[in-house]
């Protein structure tokens, strides 16, 4: 395993630009294309395919006059391409139309939810990454100890659990049946933000952390064991370097890249995982917003939230790849 050397890295900077730069550009281009197709699929599926969205919203008892009015409101009387152009233009300029459920502008409904969900995902991702990396490193150092064995078995079991089972178990343990120390629901009064009432965030974050930690733990443990057993760590030990230096300077940097990738993929997962968790705790984020919108067939809200989640997915994926690449010394060298 080679460490970076300035000459080799320099060789990558040719006329065609730095290899990482080229990679970022090509991946971003691919991501934008994917997103455009995603937006067409979402739009076609929700607005055009099922015959008529207005009919779907109003149901079987709609009067022709109301149907016609809603068709005009949704712009369903125009061509598909014109409808799509108007819709995507509206999304990008912050005028995504009005909610069919209560008539409010969709962006105004979704924006505060987006902030709340972002807080939830960021805090859960951060806590999950720290706990997973720490537990994984300790388990690798104490390989085959009781601590390692118990954690490995528990993590295998927990990876299988659905989020709503984890969430309900936490509610049973900490909010209702066994102890009553935390709120069972995380309802925020309108106009307040998630961070103003931290006790409401505890159980939703704990649920998401419990779901993501096992993956990060398992990858960190495996990567750390591999690093610790490698020849360069052996070499560092034989040179007589202090144990902490071997661990932090030689082993850890090589265990990080695969772990970074798994952390990124788990952040991705959180984008979908918040749907169920927010619903369980009545937390006003976009996940709960999506479930409500699906129940009400509130098509403009569904469209916006699904596209936001897909955009997060696509760009987070690219970011994960690039960060993992930057964290891998030998891959920075141009081939």
């Amino acid at each position: 395993m080679v460490t970076v050397d300035a000459r080799a890295t320099g060789a990558g900077r040719g006329r065609r630009g730095h290899p990482i730069g080229r990679l970022v550009v090509s991946r971003l281009g691919g991501g934008v294309i994917t997103l455009i197709i995603v937006s067409i699929v979402v739009f076609a599926a929700t607005q055009i395919l099922p015959g008529n969205a207005a009919y779907a919203v109003l149901g079987h008892n709609a009067t022709p006059a109301r149907l016609h009015a809603l068709e005009l409101q949704l712009g369903l009387n125009r061509s598909a391409a014109a409808q799509y152009a108007a819709w995507i233009g509206g999304l990008l300029t912050g005028k995504a139309g009005n909610s069919l459920a209560n008539g409010q502008p969709v962006w105004a409904l979704v924006a505060p939810r987006l902030v709340n969900s972002a807080v939830l995902v960021a805090l859960s991702g951060l806590a999950g990454a720290l706990i997973g990396v720490l537990l994984g490193a300790i388990a690798a150092l104490r390989k085959d100890s009781l601590f390692d064995y118990v954690l490995s078995v528990v993590s295998l079991a927990v990876t299988a659990l659905p989020e709503f089972v984890v969430a309900i178990s936490l509610v049973i343990l900490f909010a209702t049946v066994v102890f009553q120390v935390l709120p069972a629901v995380s309802v925020l009064p309108p106009g307040t933000w998630a961070w103003q009432q931290p006790e409401l965030l505890v159980l939703p974050i704990a649920t998401l952390v419990i779901v993501v930690v096992p993956y990060i733990f398992r990858m960190m443990r495996a990567a750390m064991i591999e690093a610790l057993e490698s020849e360069y760590v052996e070499m560092a030990r034989l040179k007589g370097l202090p144990a902490w230096r071997v661990l932090l300077v030689h082993a850890l940097p090589n265990a990080v890249p695969p772990t970074v990738q798994v952390i990124g993929l788990n952040l991705l997962y959180l984008a979908g995982g918040i749907v169920v968790v927010e619903y369980v705790f009545d937390f006003p984020g976009i996940g709960q917003g999506l479930v409500n919108a699906v129940s009400n067939r509130d098509i403009p809200v569904i469209q916006l939230i699904v596209v936001i989640l897909a955009a997060f997915y696509v760009f987070m994926n690219i970011l994960t790849d690039v960060v993992a690449l930057l964290a891998t010394p030998r891959r920075r060298i141009a081939r």
């Binding site: 599926a45 749907v275 699904v306 989640l309 897909a310």
Partner: peptide, 11 residues
């Protein structure tokens, strides 16, 4: 793949 599984089903 750009859709989380559950979101895809909900859509």
């Amino acid at each position: 793949l750009a859709f989380p599984s559950l979101v895809f089903a909900l859509l």
